[in-house]
Design a protein around this nucleic acid. Structure first.
Length: 333
DNA sequence: GTATTCT
DNA sequence: AGAATACAACGCATC
DNA sequence: GATGCG
């Protein structure tokens, strides 16, 4: 390919977008070139939420019709300007007695995440076939202290009104514990309710508080919400997926494309728009609109909430409720 | 999409 | 040389 | 013990 519209500047070199005309989203006819272009232009918005956070990507090198896969580790061939951030995985019981016999092909129990910071990083990943970008709720610089709480609301099929109600319940409950929040249309079935916080609480303490939070709201609204892990137990209720806040768990980044037929976009919006914004309202074709809209989540993140206050209030409420935590006691010592 | 390993 | 394969991760539940 | 599932 010669130079032209399908080239990108990367580390001072013009790099061609390969297979720019390949159709990635068959149902709406969007091509790989359009995906790269989307990520270049949305970059200023997206990077606010993704820079400095360990990044996971979901790639579809042959388009949505082909097989896709997640990728965390940075391949050697990624440009040097994409920072690498090493995280030791499964801090298995201190002083793992059993040393790794001989040398394995697998280096060690570490994951080397990419940290993106520039628009061309996103363009590069898009050219690699990345569709979805997922980030952790804490920053690499302070990995053990999340700066966001994400309440993931997962509705049963065709329960739009219900999941809207659930979002309001989550907003009000967070508010009772001192946190302001912003809804995010995930591009899929549900909403995320996101509360930026000062990273003052370690992720396990916060994870336990969120488990309690989920139990509290589900108990208070038993017809609308459930924390039941098993689908059979959920009935026609919205699943409050408190597991989203597990150590190193990831959530889809705001402004990430989704690997859906319509090429939807995960989009933060204002509470006042809840009745007119469905979880999959925004798509790749709304790029200009998205850039015009402003970002209420980025705005709220400038005045993060008090995580310590939240945790103590949740603890108080939980103790007073007489509720008991169900299975999952991974947060115990 | 790219690198590595298999046949 | 061309085909196959890897590219996250994790407990829990179910079979 | 392998597979399903979020």
């Amino acid at each position: 390919m010669l130079d032209g519209p399908n080239t990108r500047k990367l580390e001072g070199v013009m790099v061609a977008v390969s297979n720019a005309d390949r159709v990635v989203f068959p149902e709406v006819g969007r091509t790989k070139g359009e995906v790269v272009s989307y990520y270049e232009r949305i970059a200023p918005r997206l990077l606010v939420h993704a820079t400095g956070r360990p990044l996971s990507i979901r790639r579809f090198p042959k388009g949505l019709a082909g097989a896709g896969f997640f990728q965390k580790n940075v391949p050697d061939h990624y440009p040097a300007s994409i920072e690498r951030f090493t995280v030791s995985r499964s801090p298995r019981s201190n002083g793992s007695s059993r040393a790794r016999a001989k040398k394995d092909a697998k280096p060690a129990d570490v994951t080397i995440y990419p940290l993106v910071s520039e628009p061309e990083h996103l363009a590069y990943l898009a050219n690699q076939g990345a569709i979805e970008l997922h980030v952790t709720t804490s920053r690499a610089a302070d990995l053990l202290h999340p700066d966001r709480i994400v309440i993931d609301l997962d509705p049963p099929k065709g329960a739009l009104a219900l999941v809207r109600k659930a979002a309001l319940i989550a907003r009000d409950a967070l508010g009772e514990f001192g946190l302001d929040s912003i809804p995010v249309a995930t591009g899929s079935k549900g909403y995320h309710v996101v509360a930026p916080i000062v990273p003052s609480v370690d992720l396990e303490t916060l994870g336990l508080a969120l488990q309690k939070f989920g139990a509290l709201v589900a108990a208070k609204f038993p017809d609308e919400l459930t924390t039941a892990f098993r689908i059979a137990e959920r009935g026609k209720r919205v699943f409050v997926d408190w597991l989203r806040n597990r150590p190193l768990a990831t959530v889809v980044s705001p402004y990430s494309l989704r690997a859906t037929p319509r090429a939807s976009v995960a989009t933060p919006f204002a509470w006042s728009e809840l009745e007119v914004v469905a979880p999959d309202t925004f798509t790749i074709d709304d790029l200009d609109r998205l850039l015009e809209r402003g970002d209420p989540l980025a705005a709220l993140a400038e005045t993060p909430g008090d995580a310590s206050f939240f945790v103590s209030k949740v603890d108080d409420a939980f103790d007073a409720s007489g509720l008991v935590l169900e299975p999952f006691d991974r947060f115990r010592s």
